[in-house]
Computed example of a mutant assay.
Amino acid sequence: MQVSVEMSLYPLADNYLDTIKDFIERLNQHSELTVLTNTMSTQVFGEMQDVMRILGEEMELLFQNVPSNVLVCKFINKDLRPENA
Rank of each mutant, 00 (worst) to 15 (best):
M1E: 09
Q2K: 14
Q2Y: 10
S8H: 03
S8A: 14
Y10S: 02
Y10L: 11
Y10A: 04
L12Q: 08
L12A: 06
A13P: 00
N15V: 06
L17G: 00
D18V: 04
D18L: 09
T19H: 12
T19R: 12
I20D: 01
I20S: 03
I20E: 01
K21R: 15
D22K: 10
F23Y: 15
I24Y: 00
E25D: 15
E25N: 12
R26G: 04
L27G: 02
N28G: 15
H30S: 05
E32F: 03
L33Q: 09
L33N: 09
L36H: 08
L36G: 00
T37P: 01
N38D: 13
T39P: 01
T39L: 11
E47L: 10
M48C: 11
M48N: 09
Q49E: 15
Q49H: 13
D50F: 04
V51S: 07
M52Q: 15
M52L: 15
R53S: 13
R53P: 01
G56D: 13
E57N: 09
E57D: 08
E58V: 06
M59V: 10
M59G: 00
L61Q: 12
L61C: 02
F63K: 08
N65I: 01
V66T: 15
V66L: 11
V66N: 14
P67L: 06
P67C: 02
V70D: 07
N77E: 11
K78V: 07
R81M: 10
R81P: 05
E83I: 08
